[in-house]
């Protein structure tokens, strides 16, 4: 039962990734792209968790921690740079 569910969930997450990439490519403003990148990193954390379940290796959860931290830092830095309009 679990392999079927893992395949279904990975398919849903892949479709969500495709939809988010469409928004990333055609987002009218820069902030739209930042929102799409934030959602892509969240989707990547979810995929890492599914992969850890499907391979029975719990070490992948540490990658999820690191990716969550780096995604928050990246989003914050990008928003800070965007809000100041490039001025220091």
């Amino acid at each position: 039962m679990l392999p079927i569910v893992v395949n279904v969930v990975l398919g849903m997450l892949g479709l969500a990734l495709v939809l988010t990439c469409i928004r990333l490519l055609r987002g009218p403003s820069m902030a739209d792209r930042v929102v799409a990148l934030d959602l892509i990193s969240t989707l990547a954390v979810g995929m890492i968790c599914v992969y850890a379940i499907s391979t029975d290796q719990d070490v992948y959860l540490r990658d999820a921690i690191v990716l969550a931290v780096i995604a928050f830092l990246g989003t914050t830095a990008f928003a800070n740079y965007l809000g100041k309009g490039g001025q220091p």
Binding site: V5, V6, V8, V9, M12, L13, L15, A16, L17, L19, T20, I22, R23, V35, A36, L39, T42, L43, G46, V50, I53
Partner: peptide, 17 residues
């Protein structure tokens, strides 16, 4: 729980699009 999470993340992507 996995199906719950995946459906919510799919809804998030659909909403962003």
């Amino acid at each position: 729980l996995m199906l719950f999470g995946a459906s919510f993340m799919f809804l998030a992507a659909l909403g962003v699009l």
